[in-house]
């Protein structure tokens, strides 16, 4: 198992005596991972800690062996990238290309290489034709893709996406799914915070359920979604396909449409 991130006894509090995260220990390997949980469960706080934007109140986080307490956030950005929820929090350049090049220029110093990376990343999110447009002339969903490209272009080994599917239509969702798949193929660890259970079921191998600062469930996505009782406690729903399967009286936990279709076809033949 390739250990990429190690979290040891992590606790964090914004205010004294009010812990947002309580004694969390985890190891991330290269399996793509979804973090789910109610609002206020501590998901965004957790990824900000991974990224080094916040420092643990107690416990340690090692990103590729570097303790986040000991190195600067800018230094860590070579290894771990975080795409924020709201793209407007970062956009300041005059063209999409320049915006995406900002990150790589910070860590590479070689302009040609930075531009190459930026163009590749824009191709990945399907914005190669809009490179010279002002980012604010794009709609919110495209701007969100710009912010994803601007992290992908930095080529970190770990990429965290905070709510990537917000404000996306079906087309945008498909693009994001493909980006994640492509990153997985390149051997990168993708961690995503999301409320979209269908998205989790379709894409992610591992799922972590956070609830009130502790890990309620952690494991293979299928195993996690078969623990319906515990999920209910965290106010989480099953993916739509799994709900449908349950209503059809199927005992297995099915995660994608294809699985359901195959299951039904197979059963019909048996009947």
């Amino acid at each position: 198992m390739d250990e990429v991130i190690r979290v040891q006894n992590l606790s964090f509090a914004y205010k004294q005596d009010y812990e947002v995260l309580k004694n969390i220990s985890l190891v991330f390997d290269k399996k793509s991972t979804a973090i789910i949980g109610q609002n206020g469960a501590g998901k965004t706080t957790f990824v900000k800690l991974l990224k080094g934007l916040l420092k643990p109140t107690s416990g340690e986080i090692y990103i590729k062996g570097y303790n986040t307490k000991e190195v600067s956030t800018a230094f860590l950005s070579k290894y771990i990238g975080l795409v924020f929820q709201n793209p407007n929090d970062q956009i300041f350049k005059n063209t999409v290309l320049e915006e995406v090049m900002f990150g790589p220029l910070n860590i590479l110093k070689d302009k040609k290489q930075a531009q190459e990376n930026a163009i590749k990343a824009l191709e990945m999110v399907g914005l190669q034709d809009k490179m010279h447009i002002h980012p604010y002339d794009l709609g919110l969903s495209d701007r969100k893709l710009v912010s994803i490209a601007s992290i992908v272009s930095m080529d970190p080994d770990i990429i965290i996406l905070d709510e990537p599917t917000i404000a996306q239509d079906h087309k945008g969702n498909t693009i994001i799914k493909n980006v994640i798949k492509e990153l997985k193929e390149k051997g990168k660890l993708v961690i995503t915070i999301t409320h979209d259970m269908d998205f989790v079921a379709e894409i992610f191998e591992r799922t972590i359920v956070l609830n009130e600062g502790i890990i309620l469930l952690d494991g293979n996505t299928r195993e996690v979604f078969s623990q319906q009782e515990i999920l209910k406690k965290a106010y989480l729903e099953l993916p739509h396909v799994a709900q449908l399967a349950k209503k059809l009286g199927i005992k297995q936990t099915l995660l994608t449409e294809q699985e359901l279709i195959n299951f039904l076809k197979h059963n019909k033949l048996n009947n």
Binding site: A74, S77, Q90, S150
Partner: peptide
């Protein structure tokens, strides 16, 4: 608080602010 988020977002892209 907006400036704080922006600061985080730019640090996340490797901007040295210190």
């Amino acid at each position: 608080s907006i400036v704080d988020t922006i600061l985080d977002a730019q640090k996340a892209r490797g901007l040295e602010t210190e």
